[in-house]
């Protein structure tokens, strides 16, 4: 299997299930739907992207969505220069996605963290418990944009 060919076959496979991979420097970007997420992930594993580097949620209140981004990575020499980026948008008021723990076992903590900090529910994840936040946290998920941290100005008035 020579360089590129695996990547190209992955691209082709992704096109076959109706997704549009876009090439960027160092990243192969795919916009997926919640339904096509699991097939895309399975395809990625088959082609060598055998673990996740990151699961990330970005809150876009203006569009009313939370974008969940999976970065899959491979340690193989031909694939390690390129990350596979799968982006899924879910509605902000009810963010639900299938869990990928079956496909990528190391999603265990990454998904749990995204649930903890961004409030995205991963269906089928065995333990969506608090990971980083204190167990009694009852505020909104802190990484959402409507959770504001206070900032201070530059000036202080003194007598």
């Amino acid at each position: 299997m020579n360089t590129g060919s695996r990547l190209e076959r992955l691209e082709k496979g992704l096109r076959d299930i109706g997704l549009e991979p876009v090439k960027a420097p160092g990243v192969l970007r795919v916009d997926a739907q919640p339904e096509s997420l699991v097939p895309a992930a399975r395809l990625a594993v088959e082609h060598g992207y055998d673990h996740l580097a990151s699961v990330e949620g970005i809150d876009w209140p203006s569009e009313g969505v939370i974008e969940v981004i999976y970065h899959a990575e491979s340690y193989d020499e031909d694939l390690r220069g390129t990350l596979l980026e799968i982006r899924v948008k879910v509605p902000r008021d009810e963010p639900r996605l299938p869990s990928l723990i079956e496909v990528w076992p190391n999603a265990l903590f990454l998904e749990r963290e995204t649930w903890d900090l961004m409030g995205v529910v991963f269906e089928g994840h065995p333990e969506l418990r608090r990971l980083l936040m204190p167990p009694d946290w009852d505020g909104p998920p802190p990484l959402r944009k409507d959770f504001k941290v206070k900032t201070e100005g530059v000036f202080v008035n003194v007598e």
């Binding site: 055998d50 580097a53 990575e73 340690y75 390690r80 190391n106």
Partner: peptide
């Protein structure tokens, strides 16, 4: 590989990355 382990812990398992 499957667990996405990194660093010396990965390389001590024979994966050159």
């Amino acid at each position: 590989r499957r667990l996405g382990v990194v660093g010396p812990n990965l390389r001590a398992s024979g994966v050159r990355y």
